[in-house]
Write a protein that binds this DNA or RNA. Structure first.
Length: 833
RNA sequence: GCGGAUGUGGCGAAAUUGGUAGACGCGCCGCACUCAAAAUGCGGUCUCGCAAGAGGUGUCGGUUCGAGUCCGACCAUCCGCACCA
C-alpha cells in the first residue's frame, strides 16, 4: 500500500548494485557504437558544490540515455589536482599540499558517489599523481624536441615587499594580497609553447565544430584575432651613431596613412630601452608605465601616458616629421610593438592626441564634400571615402588599403601581412604544487630536457611554506643535478607547469592509460574525440583553446590522429543563490540569515549571485542529499532553467522536486493493471517518448522535465486501462536517466527483470504522433479572433470559407469583402479587412 | 577599454524558429479531506474591465497580412580578458 520512496535506503542499495555489477564500466573491446561523454573534471577544493552537481547531473543523464540506446559509453571522472589553493592551504593551515589535496579528493569522491553518477571509476586519476604528470613531462619533452617550446622574457606581477610573483587573482586593486604593496610588472625568463604556430589551424578548425555553441566559436575567433594589415617602417632620426634608425609599425588601417599625427612605441620597445639606458627621465617614465598588474583590463583602462623622444619621417613625404612617443597603451606583444597614431579614426589615438595636443586630421569621410568637417567628441572608425590623402582621394577604405600596400611593396618600405592577437602560451609558474618542468640548466649545454628514462621528475615532499616565493627554489638539494648531456654540474628548472597543461590532455588519458607511455594511439583513437563535453562557459576560451592546441601539437608529432578533441561542446550556466547581509553589512550564510530572521534580527536580502565563498551564499549539497535523496537533487538541477542559463537554488525548488519524486512513486505503486485501450493516452505517451528523447539529445533537460510532468498529469487523469498501465511502466524508463535510483526501485517493484540502467529506451509508434484534427487560429488583421477545428490537411478553400463564415469575422467585416486572405495550412487564417 | 551573452506573469520558464504569447513547474488564492497540522486531491491565477473588449514579451523606431522571434538605435544586467580553476 501507499508507502513513501525512501531514498536514504534505496540510493545506497542501487549504487552498490551498479558498482558490483560493473554496470558503468566502459569496455575498450565492445563492438557496440561508442560514446564518450565528459564533464570538465573538478579541482579538489574541499567539498562538492552545486555547480559540480549540476554539471555532472547533465552529463550523467546523457550518458545513461546513450547506454539505453545501445551504446558503449565512456563516462570517466578524475581530478584537476594541481593549483594554488593547495599552497595557500599549506601556508594558512600548515598542511602539506599533497595531503590537503588527497583528503579533498577522498571527500569529494564520496560525495559524488552519493549522487549515483554512471561513472567508470576504474579510470579515475588525479593530475598530481606522478603516473600522470610523469607522462605529461614526457609529452613536454616531445614538444621541446619538436621545437614547440622556447624560453623568452615576459612580464609577471611582482610584489616588491614579498619579493614574489603574484597571480592576477592575488593582485587586489593594484596591490599584493598579502603585503598590500603596490604591484609592479617585472620581466622574467619563462617557458612558452608555440601556440601561435597553430593560429591558422585553430581558427580554421572552428568551422568544423558544428556541435559547438556559436558564441564560443565566436569568442575563440576573436581571441585568436586574425587581422590583415601592413607592416611598414618609419625612418627614425637617430641621435648617436649606431642607434636604432627605423621604427617598424603594424596597422590594420594602412588607408589612413595620411592621417598620421604621431608614432608611438611600447615601453618595452628596443627604442625605449635605448633611451632608458642613457636618460633617467625616460627610465623613470618607463618605470611609471610598469606600475600596476599585467591584466589586459588593467593595461587598457590605465590613463594614457606618453613621453616624446624624437621624430620620424613619413614614408610618403620626406618633409613630414612626426613626433615619436613612448606610450603605455602600446603593447609589445601585438604587431611590432609600435604604431602610428591616426586620431581622427581611432579612439585610443584620439584620446592620446587630445591629451598631448596633437593634430587630428580627417582622412575618411562619408563623401568628398565632408572632407573639411572637423572630428568632434570621438574618433570616426567607420567606413567611407578617402579625403585629404593625395593619391588615395576618392577611393573606398578597401581600395585605399590595397593601394597603400601595393605602393609600399613596390617601393620597399612596407608589406601586407597578417597579425594575430593570439600570443604564445606562457606555461612557467614559480610555484611548488604543479608538474615540474623537466628541464636541466647546464652552464655548458644550456637548457637540456630530462631524458625520458629519468622521468618522472618527482616533486620533493620535504618543502616549506613558511616564506613567500617558490619552495622548489629554496629546497636545499633538489635543484642540484648532473647534466644529462655532459654529466657536469647543473641545476633543475624550478618552475612548474601551468595547470592548464594538465587539463589539456586528461581526456586522452581517460581513454587509454598504459603504464609506460602517456596513452596508446589506437586505444585513444577508438574513443576520441569526446562526443559531448560539458562545462562552464568560463572555460570558453583558455582551457578549450589550450586543449585544442595540445591535441593538434600531438597530431603533428604523430602521437594521435586527431585534430579536434571535442566534437560536441555544451556550456552550462552557474548555480546562483540569494545573498544576505546583516545590518553591519556582513555577509550571512543562508542558514545564518534564517536563524537571524527567526530571532527577530534584521536581514537584508541582496541580489541573486553566483554561489561563492566570499558572498557566503553557498548551499552545501551533502545535507540536501541527506534530506531529499540524490534523485530529488538531480531532478531539481534539471528542472526549470535551461541548462545554458543560470539556475537559482531555492528551498521551494528542492521541495517541489521532492514532492514529484514521491508523486511518481505513488503512480507506480498504483499502477492499476486493467483492460482496454485509451487512444488519447497512447498518443500522449508516444509524444512523451519522442519528445523526451529529442530534448535529451539536444540537452534541453528543462523541456524534457516539462514533458514528463505533462505525461504524468495525463496518466494520473486517465481512467484505468491497459494503456494506462503500459504508460506507467514506460514512464519509469523515461525518467531513468534523471532519477536512476527511483527508476531501479520501481523497475524491481513492477517485477521487471534486470536493471533499468540496462533496459533499452522505449519505442513508440510514429503514427501516434500525428493528430487527425487540428486547431486553426483565426485572425483578422493579425489579431486573434477565434479558433477553428478542422481535419488535418483540409484544403485551403474549405478553411477560407469556414473563416469568412465565422461570426467574429462577419461582425468585423460588416458586410465588406476582405482585401486579402492568408491561409497557412493546418495553422491559421489571417483575413485582411 | 576590448570581446561574448542575457532581458517574456509575483518567480523559473515555454513558444513547432515569422503564424493562437505564457506550455510545464514554483508561489499564491479558494475548496475538499483532517479534532488539528503535514501530506494529498479538485478548481483558479498576465494586466485593466461586470461584460463586450482593450492592452501586453527591457525602451524607442522600422520591415511584414502577421514580430517574443527579423533590422536599427538605446537602456540594464551578467560572463571572459592570457598567472583563479
Amino acid at each position: 500500500m501507499a508507502s513513501r520512496f525512501n531514498p536514504l535506503a534505496a540510493d545506497a542499495r542501487w549504487q552498490k548494485v551498479w558498482e558490483e555489477a560493473g554496470t558503468f564500466h566502459a569496455s575498450d573491446s565492445s563492438n557496440r557504437p561508442k560514446a564518450y561523454i565528459l564533464e570538465m573534471f573538478p579541482y579538489p577544493s574541499g567539498r562538492i558544490h552545486m555547480g559540480h552537481v549540476r554539471n555532472y547531473t547533465m552529463g550523467d543523464v546523457l550518458a545513461r540515455y546513450r547506454r539505453m540506446n545501445g551504446m558503449e559509453v565512456l563516462h570517466p571522472m578524475g581530478w584537476d589536482a594541481f593549483g594554488m589553493p593547495a599552497e595557500n592551504a599549506a601556508m594558512e593551515r600548515k598542511v602539506h599540499p599533497a595531503e590537503w589535496t588527497r583528503a579533498n579528493i577522498a571527500t569529494m569522491r564520496a560525495q559524488l558517489k552519493r549522487l549515483g553518477f554512471a561513472l567508470d571509476w576504474s579510470r579515475e586519476f588525479a593530475t598530481c599523481d606522478p603516473a600522470y604528470y610523469g607522462h605529461e613531462q614526457a609529452l613536454f619533452v616531445d614538444l621541446f624536441e619538436a621545437g614547440l617550446v622556447y624560453r623568452k622574457e615576459s612580464e609577471v606581477n611582482w610584489d616588491p615587499v614579498d619579493m614574489t610573483v603574484l597571480a592576477n587573482e592575488q593582485v587586489i586593486d593594484g596591490r599584493g594580497w598579502r603585503s598590500g604593496a603596490p604591484v609592479e610588472r617585472r620581466k622574467l625568463a619563462q617557458w612558452f609553447l608555440k601556440i601561435t604556430d597553430f593560429a591558422e589551424d585553430l581558427l580554421a578548425g572552428l568551422a568544423t565544430l558544428d556541435q559547438w555553441p556559436e558564441k564560443v566559436k565566436l569568442m575563440q575567433e576573436n581571441w585568436i584575432g586574425r587581422s590583415r594589415g601592413m607592416r611598414f617602417r618609419f625612418a627614425y632620426e637617430a641621435t648617436e651613431p649606431g642607434d636604432i634608425d627605423t621604427i617598424e609599425v603594424f596597422t590594420t588601417r594602412p588607408d589612413t596613412i595620411f592621417g598620421a599625427s604621431f608614432v608611438a612605441v611600447s615601453p618595452d620597445h628596443p627604442l625605449a630601452r635605448q633611451y632608458a639606458a642613457r636618460s633617467s627621465e625616460v627610465a623613470d617614465f618607463i618605470a611609471r608605465c610598469k606600475r600596476g598588474g599585467t591584466t589586459a583590463a588593467e593595461l587598457e583602462t590605465a590613463e594614457k601616458l606618453g613621453l616624446e623622444i624624437g621624430g620620424a619621417i613619413h614614408p610618403l613625404d620626406p618633409d613630414w616629421e612626426l613626433p615619436v612617443f613612448i606610450a603605455n597603451f602600446v603593447l609589445m606583444d601585438y604587431g611590432t610593438g609600435a604604431i602610428f597614431g591616426v586620431p581622427a579614426h581611432d579612439q585610443r589615438d584620439y584620446e592620446f592626441a587630445t591629451k598631448y595636443g596633437l593634430e587630428i586630421r580627417r582622412v575618411v569621410a562619408p563623401s568628398a564634400a565632408d572632407a573639411d568637417r572637423p572630428i568632434e567628441g570621438e574618433a570616426e572608425p567607420g567606413d567611407g571615402i578617402l579625403v585629404n590623402s593625395h593619391f588615395l582621394d576618392g577611393k573606398t577604405v578597401e581600395q585605399a588599403k590595397a593601394a597603400v600596400i601595393q605602393r609600399a611593396e613596390a617601393e620597399g618600405w612596407g608589406e601586407g601581412t597578417t597579425a594575430w592577437r593570439l600570443r604564445d602560451w606562457g606555461v612557467s609558474r614559480q610555484r611548488y604544487w604543479g608538474t615540474p618542468i623537466p628541464i636541466v640548466h647546464c652552464p655548458s649545454c644550456g637548457a637540456v630536457p630530462v631524458p625520458k628514462d629519468q622521468l618522472p621528475v618527482l616533486l620533493p615532499e620535504d618543502v616549506t611554506f613558511d616564506a613567500p616565493g617558490n619552495p622548489l627554489e629554496r629546497h636545499p638539494t633538489w635543484k642540484r643535478v648532473d647534466c644529462p648531456r655532459c654529466g657536469g654540474e647543473a641545476s633543475r628548472e624550478t618552475e612548474t607547469l601551468d595547470t592548464f597543461v594538465d587539463s589539456s590532455w586528461y581526456f586522452i588519458r581517460f581513454a587509454s592509460q598504459p603504464g609506460d607511455r602517456p596513452f596508446d594511439k589506437v586505444a585513444a583513437e577508438a574513443w576520441l574525440p569526446v562526443d559531448q563535453y560539458i562545462g562552464g562557459v568560463e572555460h570558453a576560451i583558455l582551457h578549450l583553446l589550450y586543449a585544442r592546441f595540445w591535441t593538434r601539437a600531438l597530431q603533428r608529432l604523430g602521437k594521435i590522429d586527431l585534430a579536434e578533441p571535442f566534437r560536441g561542446l555544451f556550456t552550462q550556466g552557474m548555480v546562483t543563490h540569494r545573498t544576505y547581509r546583516d545590518e553591519a553589512g556582513n555577509w550571512l550564510l543562508p542558514e545564518e540569515a534564517e536563524a537571524a530572521r527567526e530571532a527577530g534580527g534584521t536581514v537584508i536580502a541582496g541580489r541573486v549571485e553566483k554561489m561563492s565563498k566570499s558572498k557566503r551564499n553557498t548551499v552545501d549539497p551533502e545535507p540536501i542529499i541527506d534530506q531529499y535523496g540524490a534523485d530529488a537533487v538531480r531532478w531539481f538541477m534539471l528542472s526549470d532553467s535551461p541548462p545554458e542559463r543560470d539556475l537559482e537554488w531555492s528551498e521551494a525548488g528542492i521541495e517541489g522536486a521532492w514532492r514529484f519524486v514521491q508523486r511518481l512513486w505513488r503512480l507506480v505503486e498504483n499502477i492499476g493493471e486493467a483492460e482496454g485501450s485509451d487512444l488519447a493516452l497512447d498518443r500522449a505517451l508516444a509524444r512523451a517518448i519522442a519528445g523526451v528523447a529529442e530534448d535529451i539529445e539536444s540537452l534541453s533537460f528543462n523541456k524534457a522535465v516539462a514533458r514528463i510532468y505533462a505525461v504524468v498529469n495525463a496518466i494520473e487523469k486517465a481512467p484505468p486501462s491497459a494503456s494506462r498501465a503500459r504508460a506507467t511502466r514506460t514512464l519509469v524508463r523515461l525518467v531513468a536517466p534523471m532519477m536512476p535510483h527511483l527508476a531501479e526501485e520501481a523497475w524491481a517493484a513492477m517485477g521487471e527483470s534486470g536493471l533499468v540502467a540496462d533496459a533499452p529506451w522505449p519505442e513508440h509508434d510514429p503514427a501516434l504522433l500525428v493528430e487527425d484534427e487540428v486547431t486553426i487560429a483565426l485572425q483578422v488583421n493579425g489579431k486573434l479572433r477565434d479558433t477553428l477545428k478542422a481535419p488535418r490537411g483540409s484544403p485551403r478553400e474549405a478553411i477560407e470559407q469556414m473563416a469568412i463564415a465565422n461570426a467574429h469575422v462577419q461582425r468585423i467585416l460588416a458586410g465588406a469583402e476582405p482585401k486579402k486572405v492568408i491561409v497557412v495550412p493546418d495553422r491559421l487564417v489571417n483575413i485582411v479587412a
